[in-house]
């Protein structure tokens, strides 16, 4: 289990930044983070000549001006400047590469990204970076109010689920949030297609029982009482686990969905597992925390690119 020592907030100079700073402020308040970075990746900012001509006396580099702007914004919206070390950084270079390098160098444990619902933005950077970064990632939309009173952890009894559960417990200890778990199961493909509606119901019951046993084993392995964290076992009939999680989270007034994510390589790309990726895509009203295993990710990337 990793401590949330270093948090990084990715800012893009839009209105979204205000919401992210407020959310980060809340996170810092709830955890014992040591340092928080507010990072802006300076894009190739070759401003059109007509704009530059308006500032003939501009002596400072543009990055400096932007940094001042960000610092002012942080000072205005971040309420824990005294209790935690804060640094506003403006970095240049290829966005995803720079971000990953920064994450590694500063041993970032949690990266905060904005997820624009109403504001314009393609979300291309988080999509590109999420599989590659060794840090965990939280996606927060501008519609979210900063509070964590109920956390839902998605589990599939894997190693990554264990890490997600441990992180969730740690977060709930910080915030006092109630914890619930969710496991979505499918009927094994070997049963297709020869079952009737009754068979399906019977198999569903069988799968639920099997999942309950697995959950007990899973919790025992973590030295936890299965009853302490109630788990819902849902039948993923349509092979749309992300939608199921979203729906269940909304219905149960969850403030944070956590999922342990595996990464894998596909056609020379590093990608997240399908559920994490889809969840990051569909989720708009509840923040999603994608928990990564730093060692696994770093090891995987080194093995892939060495």
């Amino acid at each position: 289990m990793e401590k949330l020592d270093n948090i990084m907030v990715c800012m893009d100079l839009t209105e979204m930044d205000d919401f992210l700073i407020s959310y980060a402020s809340y996170l810092v308040e709830q955890t014992d983070a040591k340092k928080i970075y507010f990072l802006h990746l300076l894009q190739n900012y070759d401003l059109p000549a007509e704009i530059l001509s308006e500032f003939p006396d501009l002596k400072r580099p543009i990055s400096k001006v932007l940094q001042e702007e960000l610092e002012e914004n942080v000072a205005k919206n971040f309420s824990h400047q005294e209790s935690i070390e804060t640094e506003v950084v403006v970095e240049e270079g290829v966005k995803s590469d720079t971000l990953l390098q920064f994450t590694r160098e500063h041993k970032i444990n949690l990266t905060v990204f904005g997820k624009k619902v109403g504001y314009q933005g393609s979300g291309a950077l988080p999509r590109r970076v999420m599989p590659l970064t060794p840090s965990s990632v939280i996606l927060v939309s501008e519609t979210v109010f900063p509070k964590i009173e109920k956390i839902m952890v998605r589990i599939d009894f894997s190693k990554m689920s264990e890490i997600a559960m441990k992180t969730a417990i740690q977060l709930s200890e910080y915030t006092g949030a109630q914890l619930i778990a969710l496991h979505a199961y499918r009927i094994p493909i070997s049963h297709f297609p020869q079952y009737s509606h009754d068979d399906e119901k019977r198999l569903q019951q069988k799968m639920t029982k099997h999942s309950e046993k697995e959950y007990e084993k899973f919790m025992k392995k973590l030295k936890l009482d299965p009853k302490a964290i109630p788990c819902a076992f849902l039948y993923d009939r349509n092979y749309q686990e992300a939608q199921l999680l979203y729906h269940y989270g909304l219905k149960n007034h969850v403030d944070l969905i956590m999922i342990g994510s595996k990464i894998k390589s596909e056609l020379a790309n590093v990608i997240l597992d399908r559920t994490s990726e889809e969840l990051a895509e569909v989720e708009k009203n509840i923040p999603v925390l994608i928990v990564k295993d730093r060692k696994q990710t770093l090891g995987f990337l080194e093995a892939l690119f060495d």
Binding site: Q43, Y45, I62, S122
Partner: peptide
């Protein structure tokens, strides 16, 4: 085109900040 649009938006934002601070 999406990337280009975002880039243009970004340029506009930077220009606005420059105007404001300078």
């Amino acid at each position: 085109r999406v990337r280009e649009r975002e880039h243009k938006d970004y340029q506009r934002i930077v220009a606005d900040i420059l105007k404001k601070r300078e």
